[in-house]
């Protein structure tokens, strides 16, 4: 749908609230759920990608330098990446804002 979620009126709702466009779940900002965010000490990163494999949200992306970084639009702050990282790159930090 071309409209943003908070612009959709009741008249825009498809019959039976059926979703006719694939991939629309990607617009859902699960990053709102987060209370802790992963922070990275990339000096220790061996670019193994284990954090990407374990991320239940599938939000870890490889950046231009080859480092694996969570996308904050979707990251729920569960901390699984920090727990699984074999070299201790990731520390979860309370988000205060």
């Amino acid at each position: 749908m071309s409209k943003k979620e908070d612009e959709i009126t009741w008249k825009d709702i498809e019959i039976g609230a059926i979703v006719t466009e694939p991939g629309s779940t990607a617009e859902y900002k699960t990053g709102d759920w987060r209370s802790q965010a992963p922070t990275y000490n990339t000096d220790r990163c061996i670019k193994c990608g284990i954090c990407q494999v374990f991320c239940p949200e599938g939000c870890v992306e490889q950046d231009a330098g080859g480092y694996f970084i969570a996308n904050m639009y979707w990251c729920k702050g569960c901390g699984i990446c920090a727990r699984e990282c074999p070299t201790g790159v990731i520390t979860m930090v309370e988000e205060t804002e």
Binding site: E5, D6, I8, T9, W10, K11, D12, I13, G16, A17, I18, V19, T20, P22, S24, Y28
Partner: peptide, 20 residues
């Protein structure tokens, strides 16, 4: 022509779906 039926509607959409 696949569609998703019975999808989830968060608070930003549920009341619109119910009014419809």
């Amino acid at each position: 022509k696949p569609v998703t039926m019975g999808a989830f509607a968060p608070p930003v959409l549920y009341p619109e779906a119910k009014k419809a």
